[in-house]
Design a binder for these strands. Structure first.
Lengths: 337, 337
DNA sequence: TAACCTGCCTAGAACGTTCTAGTAATGGCG
DNA sequence: CGCCATTACTAGAACGTTCTAGGCAGGTTA
């Protein structure tokens, strides 16, 4: 009942089974060097005593930790999807994950320091906010892979979505539906905002719609989208809007609908991220989805390539996003087309 | 540039500073036993070499791990809020957290086993799905605290929201607004469903509204709420609905509005959980919020009380939720009132 | 018979800490 | 001067593993 009793160790199993500690270790690791008979017996004893290997001692002894440190932010739903993929990718190559969360009251520096103390072999930072220089310093200690964010330092590997392409997808979709007057509400100073803006402008150019191109200042929050909507309603309203992300798209949608406009009847709206709420019947947002699965797999692969000292090509690798068409996009109203 | 070099150890710092390993340990831990002069020098050397203590070795040696294992589910937004609180509560009592995530492809058993191997001192399981018996077995090894879920085994501590009270709050609010015909859509077989149902029935009774009490089968998903809405629309529609949670409330809202009913003009809706999307202007759901902060603090306190062998009162402790009034509740339409 | 495998097993040294027990130097006090 | 306390430090044993080097049977080969 009490948890006071010491947890059993290899030595306990060894004495109980009447063999040496080393032999029990051999059996527990499943490496050759023991007869099938003793193997069976040792395993039986271990199970009976409830023996569980001590990963601290194990890693301490065998220099290699086979442990990937992962920094994520509890506030960002994306990061949790990433965790799913990371666990799977790591398990495939027989690595474990050490998680360290960034919360409103626990900053990234603290999160990273914890991982360093745990002696993880490499660091995967999801959407790191730390100055690039600081991340770069870490690479003297261990390989660092940044996910979701462009870091222009030589030491840091980067795995991210091709955000330019993401916005091109959004624009292509709208053009295909017949839209020409398409505006973009950007992410302000948010990371990736520049890439998405560029993608938007490129796509408009490629479709010969330079004259319609128009970028409004926005941000990553719902309120930023709502504000942009009010700005937009002050002048001639475009037939379609490509938003920086889903959250700002939600704000945009809300204000548009409250002002009496129908979506997608009079205005089409595209988001970015495929946040979970976008799937809600009530929002039903057409959006650009990042391939979280691929990002996770690549991040792990990259970290391990560094650890193995394998030659690595480009420092930065991008993953293609894809469009998820839902209910906020449709052909433009007849009058404007 | 390469991460090949061995990370510096106490011994490296010791030789470099010309002192013994033990002394460096003393300095690094900040315990008495070194002069201020050498303290300064050792710290300077440690910083220069980039020394970082090895938490594996540290914990291995000093029997006590001061490590709390936390199991959470990446799919549940709630769990992330809990992490924020847990980190803070743990830091206050100088404990660290070891996180282990449950994902769609990584089950709870695996997550827990990982933590056991890390030799954490106690286990905090957020919304555990494991059979109560299995959780109870674990208590032979270490203290187990279940959060959010009622576990009726003697060995397991429980910290949860007073869900009965939560639904009473919802009903009280609606009654205060003037509603009498209030139905409840429950959570089906979901944990906590029974408690919330009971809270609803109690509250209706206390207000003398037994004759209006009506429970519809639901579930935890959006689709469950939508289905219940369609069932509801087949007969006479009540003036208010208390839903099992926010997600099912979203489904309910969507179907109601699509069928032409105004919310809260003709029907009021209350959710449960205060999920982040409930704050969106477009949803703006009145809901019952759990006090995540308090739950986290209590969970840590309870785990540590067990570790210290302090006498613990009741196995189960509940936290009061509170109502967050937003835009989906209002007085009933005149005709019905 | 001696020499050499091969299969099963063990002793004991690591890994990087912390902790216990102790030593040397200093200083105050009689 | 001798004695005891105090301060500053160190040696070496743990913690629970893994790993290297080897021992001891029993069989095969020269």
């Amino acid at each position: 009942m009490q948890s006071g009793e010491r947890r059993p160790t290899l030595a306990d199993v060894a004495t109980e089974a009447g063999v040496s500690v080393a032999l029990v270790s051999i059996v527990m690791r499943g490496v050759p060097g023991a007869s099938e008979a003793t193997r069976q017996r040792v395993r039986e004893v271990a199970a009976r005593l409830g023996y569980q290997p001590d990963s601290r001692a194990r890693r301490l002894r065998s220099g290699e930790s086979r442990l990937l440190g992962v920094v994520f932010d509890v506030r960002h739903p994306f990061h949790h999807d990433m965790l799913t993929g990371l666990y799977e990718a790591a398990a495939k190559v027989d690595y474990e994950l050490a998680l360290s969360a960034v919360t409103p009251r626990r900053d990234e520096r603290t999160a990273i320091e914890d991982l360093l103390r745990d002696r993880c072999a490499a660091l995967i930072a999801i959407g790191p906010q730390l100055p690039a220089g600081e991340l770069d310093l870490l690479t003297a200690r261990l390989p660092v892979v940044a996910v979701f964010r462009h870091v222009h330092k030589r030491g840091v590997d980067v795995v991210r979505t091709d955000d330019e392409r993401g916005l091109r997808l959004a624009v292509d979709h709208l053009v295909e539906l017949g839209h020409r007057s398409i505006v973009h509400v950007d992410g302000g100073r948010t990371a990736a905002s520049a890439e998405r803006r560029r993608g938007y402008l490129d796509a408009m150019g490629q479709h010969g719609l330079e004259e319609f191109a128009r970028v409004l200042p926005g941000g990553f929050g719902e309120e930023d989208g709502a504000r942009a909507a009010r700005d937009l309603l002050a002048g001639p309203v475009p037939t379609a809007i490509a938003m920086f992300n889903d959250l700002s798209a939600a704000g945009m949608l809300d204000v548009l609908r409250r002002s009496g406009l129908t979506v997608p009847g009079e205005v089409s709206v595209v988001g970015y991220d495929d946040a979970s709420f976008s799937r809600l019947g009530h929002i039903d947002l057409t959006t650009v989805a990042q391939d979280v699965e691929a990002l996770a797999t690549l991040a792990v692969a990259r970290a391990i390539a560094r650890l193995d000292g394998a030659p690595v090509g480009r420092r930065e690798v991008t993953v293609d996003p894809h469009l998820v068409v839902r209910g906020t996009t449709g052909p433009p109203p007849k009058a404007t087309a």
